[in-house]
């Protein structure tokens, strides 16, 4: 490892920051995929055997549930990333 390794240049901290970011992002995108493409499309008929209030469950995921989860995912991401920025000392200062 020499000093001009591009990954190292902006400081070791940034590399750790980027890894933590990728981990968080992958987890959230997995949920994103499971609720929309999973529950809303691939398993929709299977889930429709159960009811959620007046909805068939799969139908609910595809028409409303997935959208609600999307909103939550973005807010979780924004909140966790702001924390990560601070922990790794890369948050924006005025």
């Amino acid at each position: 490892m020499t000093d001009n390794n591009p990954d190292k240049q902006p400081g070791h901290e940034n590399r750790e920051y980027w890894r933590a970011n990728i981990r968080l992002m992958s987890g959230l995108l997995l949920v994103w995929f499971l609720v929309s493409f999973g529950c809303g499309i691939l398993w929709v008929d299977y889930l429709n055997q159960w009811h959620f209030f007046g909805f068939k469950l799969g139908f609910w995921f595809s028409q409303q549930g997935s959208i609600v989860v999307f909103v939550i995912l973005i807010f979780v991401y924004a909140w966790r990333m702001n924390q990560l920025d601070k922990v790794h000392g890369v948050d924006e200062q005025e």
Binding site: W32, S66, I67, F70, I74
Partner: peptide, 15 residues
């Protein structure tokens, strides 16, 4: 349309 036109915002925000 419901999922397609909202789910894109997750990609936009995270990626």
């Amino acid at each position: 349309y419901l999922m397609g036109w909202t789910g894109g915002y997750v990609l936009l925000a995270l990626l």
